[in-house]
């Protein structure tokens, strides 16, 4: 499609303030912090996996690994629930009257968050998954809570679920385009990710009872693929956002602009 530009527009009035801009600096800072956090996780994994992570029966394993596991598995759902409830209770009751400029700004903010989430996602899916492969193919598995699982499953899944739940509520209460209805692609992406919980449980059960080999492409792992595959629905969600941003960022006519801005010639 070709670019649509309405040329029936004069020079902009000067006293309406700046158009909303994406929070580039903030997004960049948060991305750097997120990468630093992933690096911290990897540093911890590299440092303590070989020294105290080989024997789940040792006291050191209980201190260095199981404490992290318990902290994650308790803190992340609690924080996620608090965040989700807070986002719901502080929702905008008059969301349909949100000025268009604020709405565009909110879309920019949301895209910045998505970029950070995407960076974390590719780190978790790429780095932590392959760390899991590398670890389990060279050592004897003796627990469900191995040093790589503690970060991949018990940090990645609860953190992802908490983040996605909060994102769902934020999107449907802060953006007029999404209010009073449900975005199917976003919901399906979240439902797919929620399947990761039962899939982790099934995986551990399989490894405990009947699956002794560490073949990574084994059929017991294919359910993870299905859960991960639902991420493609995020494309549909992004298309929804872009449709509205297109709507918001079109200049229709100068008269309409001036009327809306309360200006007169």
């Amino acid at each position: 499609m070709s670019t649509v530009v309405n040329h029936n527009v004069a020079v902009a009035p000067e006293n309406v303030g700046e158009a909303p801009r994406p929070p580039w600096v903030l997004a960049f800072t948060v991305t750097v912090i997120a990468i630093a956090f992933v690096a911290l996780v990897k540093w911890y994994q590299h440092t303590f996996s070989w020294s105290v992570g080989l024997d789940s029966f040792s006291d050191d394993f209980q201190i260095y690994w199981m404490r992290i596991f318990y902290a994650q598995i308790i803190l992340l759902p609690v924080l996620g629930t608090i965040g989700a409830v807070w986002l719901w209770l502080t929702r905008d009751r008059d969301i349909m009257n949100l000025p268009a400029r604020d709405e565009l700004g909110r879309f920019y903010a949301m895209f910045s968050i998505l970029v950070v989430a995407a960076v974390v996602l590719i780190s978790a899916l790429g780095l932590l998954t392959e760390a899991d492969a590398a670890w389990h193919q060279v050592v004897i598995r003796d627990t469900d809570f191995t040093p790589t699982h503690i970060f991949l499953f018990y940090l990645g899944v609860p953190a992802g679920l908490a983040g996605l739940a909060m994102a769902w509520i934020w999107v449907h209460t802060r953006l007029p385009y999404f209010a009073n209805r449900v975005s199917m692609p976003l919901s399906l992406a979240i439902i797919g990710f929620m399947c990761a919980g039962p899939v982790v449980a099934f995986n551990e059960w399989a490894h405990t009872f009947f699956y002794a080999e560490e073949l990574f492409g084994a059929p017991v792992h294919w359910f993870f693929v299905l859960a991960g595959f639902f991420l493609v629905f995020l494309i549909g969600f992004v298309i929804q956002c872009l449709q509205r941003m297109y709507e918001l960022s079109r200049v229709y006519s100068l008269e309409e602009v001036e009327k809306e801005m309360g200006l007169s010639r």
Binding site: L54, D55, S56, F57, S58, V139, I140, D142, T143
Partner: peptide
């Protein structure tokens, strides 16, 4: 020594 968690078997 036991250090690979072989006691878990």
């Amino acid at each position: 020594v036991f250090a690979h968690g072989e006691i878990a078997q």
